[in-house]
Design a protein around this nucleic acid. Structure first.
Lengths: 384, 384
DNA sequence: GCGGGCGGTGTAATCGATTGCATCGAGGTC
DNA sequence: GACCTCGATGCAATCGATTACACCGCCCGC
């Protein structure tokens, strides 16, 4: 510590001397010198405390406190080839649907010492490409995708093989390198539709999602399947493609209102769209559920808040998030190189609230034979 | 390129040979060898194309394409001491209030070549500490904070000085190292309250936020200020502290309903709380705005969706986000070391919808003299 | 004909941590 | 007492890029 102290301090001066910027952060070398040990010992004192003598470790800890040292993540990541961070890639944070899934992911990951950061692509391929570079550059150890659609050039798919990827509520057709966690959209949509049919409805409409979205397609298939089972021909004029957003529900409602022969019940492929639909038709004087019944999908927070509270298929969002995170943890582990991707499909639950009732008597419909429920009164309840 | 090719390939084998994991990513050295140049030239071909001969650059580009090379971010960050990434730290992504702000931030940053990632602290000091380490470890070049409250040990404040920090819709008292972008909460709250007074109300309640939140405190002050100006004594039994969330509005409504002498108008410190309040009192048979008028704060998306559409103070969220991002860009620039933090306070706009009406005639109130509006009919409109 | 400038490129130091291997002393064993 | 073991520590290579500096032709001007 004798003669090299001068060049060392000059170096520190050189770092801090230029301009009046903030003082340079302490490095592991600063800590080592102050504790009178080598950098290797400092590193070990932090990473493997039992390999360092009690007394030495105390000195290191003290030196760290005195210098305010924080390990430089870039250096560590470079050497260790891992970041202990997972990126969750969303198509839009304004969609509250994702929040409970993300919470579950974060809880699961942080319990294992991993961190989670969120990226928002806002449905933009360009922004997605930006995050793809981020992933390929080794900035994260794993990815959870909510955005996958059809494989495209330069999309996140190109990162497969480098880091493990899990898809949640989504699927990329023809891609076997991801784990997939979703619900059985077709079966759930069929159940929702059947619920309307059971209430006596024979003329049904569908607020469909984007045809490029695999989930939207599956829900549409489930809708048609339920109709077919009940022997009801679909009314193509009452099937409106668009998307899962509020505005898409508004657009569908506009087309609904323009219809000469309106359906008496609607299955909406997403709650946001269902709410946009309800809001719009009510402004036009249509009563829910007296004039039109409606079932949504997702059970977002506002489903129970709007008026009337929305009957909907609930997705087990927390479970989806937890499973995806656990899968990623397994496949990110340094000893687990050959853990194959898995696929899990969870069940949805129908949450009955107040938007489904019997067919309005005013309409010219044959009185439904198998109607058991008593209408909005009985449909009341569900969850809070 | 003669005799060292053997050790090089052995090295590559060593990297790829262990286990059956994914092939190691190509490094700049792989590209350099394939293009027959040095790593310096490859680096320059990417970072400073005009410093490299046209023909050489073409060879490098081809080599990059052939190898599938992506620069390792950790190495670059380590050397360049910057990441070109900004972290936005939220108390909870389930709160849709933040979405438009974040979008504006992302747009502004990405136009300047920066990326944005989101961290969610969920009001947990422990999770915040996790992100603090992330920041101190040099993983980001700047931070936008939505979470700051009272300075605490180990919170993000300890990162000040290392990286520039901007606060949005928040403030940390006694902290001068941040830029702050918010609205004049006190003035806006006073205007909202005055709007109710102008409609004839003389008995006002307040759904207040968390007393530890500076914004909530300011809004409460504005509420009281407006009352004082109008010569109305505050009814302390009708001021309910809680928070900005839906549940807090529900809790306030419960206490409102228990009141013997209920106020005829409510100023809620946040839309989410206002909506919880409305939903709850309506279930108890109270009509809005006939029995109770209410003004919210924020103008979140659902403010116009709920029934009846909520009259509220709109915060200029996109502007706040844009300004914060621009400020950060200035202070992150390598040549801008001494750019001081700034403070901007923006104006809110009152958005009149349908939750404010005149005082119910049934109540024993002196007929308001200066009431001009005709009630819910005239209050209709506002924005979509 | 020679020096200077300049465009293009390579060499090697550097960023800050981790970690395999060497070293060293203390204590135990035969 | 020589040798071995083992815990504690240091030395130095390493991760993959960036970049200051040196170098080499080539062209130009005087």
């Amino acid at each position: 510590m004798g003669d090299e102290s001068t060049p060392a301090s000059m170096k520190a001066l050189a770092r801090n001397g230029r301009r009046s910027g903030p003082p340079a952060a302490a490095t592991i070398l600063d800590v080592a010198r102050r504790a009178g040990v080598s950098t290797a010992t400092v590193s070990r004192a932090l990473a493997a405390p039992d390999k360092v003598a009690e007394e030495t470790r105390a000195r290191v800890i003290a030196a760290i406190a005195a210098t305010g040292y924080t390990p430089n993540a870039s250096a560590r990541n470079l050497r260790a080839r891992s970041t202990q961070i997972v990126l969750a890639l969303l198509p839009g944070i304004s969609n509250t649907f994702f929040a409970p899934i993300l919470n579950a992911i974060e809880d699961t990951l942080s319990a294992a010492g991993y961190g989670m950061i969120i990226g928002d692509t806002r449905h933009s391929l360009q922004k997605e490409a930006h995050y793809t570079r981020f992933i390929l550059a080794g900035q994260v150890d794993g990815v959870i995708l909510f955005t996958g659609q059809i494989p495209r050039d330069g999309d996140v798919a190109s990162a497969s093989g480098r880091v493990p990827i899990a898809l949640v509520c989504n699927e990329i057709v023809g891609e076997r390198r991801y784990s997939v966690f979703d619900v059985d959209n077709r079966a759930a949509a069929a159940r929702a539709t059947t619920h309307l049919i059971a209430a006596g409805h024979r003329h049904l409409g569908h607020v469909a999602g984007d045809a490029r979205n695999i989930e939207a397609v599956e829900r549409m298939k489930g809708f048609r399947l339920a109709l077919k089972r009940a022997g009801i021909p679909p009314d193509e004029a009452a099937i409106w493609e668009g998307g899962f957003r509020y505005e898409d529900g508004v657009a569908a409602a506009t087309r609904f209102l323009a219809l000469r022969e309106r359906p008496t019940a609607i299955f909406a492929s997403a709650d946001h769209a269902a709410i946009g639909f309800i809001r719009t038709v009510r402004d036009a004087g249509i009563r829910i559920p007296e004039d039109v019944s409606i079932v949504g999908f997702d059970d977002i927070d506002y489903a129970s808040v709007i008026d009337p509270p929305l009957t909907t298929m609930r997705q087990p969002r927390a479970s989806l998030g937890r499973l995806a995170a656990e899968d990623l943890l397994q496949r990110m582990g340094r000893d687990a190189v050959d853990v194959p991707p898995i696929r899990e499909r969870l069940r949805c639950d129908l949450i009955e609230r107040e938007t489904v009732g019997p067919v309005a008597t005013a309409r010219s419909v044959r009185r439904p034979a198998k109607l058991q429920r008593e209408g909005s009164g009985a449909a009341r309840g569900g969850v809070t």
